[in-house]
Amino acid sequence: MNIFRLAGDMTHLASVLVLLLKIHTIKSCAGVSLRTQELYAIVFATRYLDIFTSFVSVYNTFMKLVFLGSSFSIVWYMRYHKAVHRTYDREQDTFRHWFLVLPCLVLALLIHEKFTFLEVLWTFSLYLEAVAILPQLVLLQRTRNIDNLTGQYIFLLGGYRGLYILNWIYRYFTEPHFVHWITWIAGLVQTLLYADFFYYYFLRFIGGRGVE
């Protein structure tokens, strides 16, 4: 574990907590894409299958349970909780996210580190996570401007993988044989997809107004 990866995990945890805070306390999911949340639930379900077979550390297992639990409960809240579901913007959240799942699965079957069931699903989760934010970014452009909590959620979610990139650079230089091109490229694509959002998000800080 290094400071970049710890910062990345904490940023990711913060993004999940901000979203849970918004949904649980003010019972609103306005501006949040259910489709992105569904994709993230699939990402964690396929990435953490090894939670039963391999033990890395208490921290690792605990965080996996947190991310699994939070992603599924956010989907549950947005789908089935009356008050929250009422604030869900169904008409605007129309990105065909299931069209993202199949290509990622095919790509994982073609490009992976090892052709085993767990490894292919793990690789699939990497590819899917790289594009999982697309429905949310599309929804963002359709809804005029968003509240601060949603903006902070997206900012933290985009930032965590950026910190992971620093972690991979650090591990590449400090650990022999630490080379994972698939993870690195997927992580880079994922972070670059936020570039446009980061630009407007920082403008907001400079301008001191809501995210347009």
Partner: peptide, 10 residues
């Protein structure tokens, strides 16, 4: 450290 096929990252 954990064997190669382990994924020790989240």
């Amino acid at each position: 450290d954990t064997p190669k096929d382990f994924h020790d990252e989240l």
